[in-house]
C-alpha cells in the first residue's frame, strides 16, 4: 500500500490536523512503513471469520428511564476556554 502526501492531506483534513511540509514528508514515509507492516495481516486467512468488536458477548446493558438532576452549569462550563451567557463561545457557524 503506497501512502501519498495527498492521502496524508486528506486524513489530516478529516482529523483537523495540519502538518507543516517537513513533518508531512516524514509522516508520509513513516505511515507508509507502518501500513506496509500491517499488510502482514493479508497472510492470515480470515474468510468467514466474524469481526469481533466486543471481546465478551455482553448484550442489552441498559438503564431505566428515570431522570437524575443535571449537573451544575458553572462546573460543567468551568473548563471552557471561552464562555459567555452560560454557553461555550466559538467562531460563528451560521452563514
Amino acid at each position: 500500500m503506497k501512502i501519498t502526501e495527498e492521502m496524508v492531506d486528506y486524513i489530516s483534513q478529516l482529523s483537523r490536523l495540519q502538518l507543516p511540509q517537513e513533518e508531512k514528508t516524514a509522516m508520509t514515509a513513516q505511515l507508509e512503513g507502518i501500513v506496509a507492516y500491517m499488510d502482514v495481516l493479508n497472510r492470515l486467512d480470515t474468510s468467514g471469520v466474524e469481526p469481533v468488536s466486543h471481546i465478551f458477548p455482553l448484550k442489552n446493558v441498559t438503564r431505566s428511564d428515570e431522570v437524575v438532576p443535571s449537573g451544575d452549569r458553572e462546573e460543567l462550563l468551568a473548563n471552557g476556554p471561552a464562555v459567555k451567557d452560560g454557553a461555550f463561545l466559538v467562531p460563528k457557524t451560521v452563514e
Binding site: 438503564r63 437524575v68 443535571s70 449537573g71 452549569r73 452560560g86 454557553a87
Partner: peptide, 20 residues
C-alpha cells in the same frame, strides 16, 4: 446547558449507558 451532565457534554472519561 442546564439539562446537561459530563456524559452528554462529552467530557473526557465519561461513558454512555443506553436508556431501555
Amino acid at each position: 446547558n442546564t439539562h446537561c451532565c459530563p456524559v452528554c457534554m462529552g467530557m473526557p472519561g465519561t461513558l454512555p449507558v443506553l436508556n431501555e
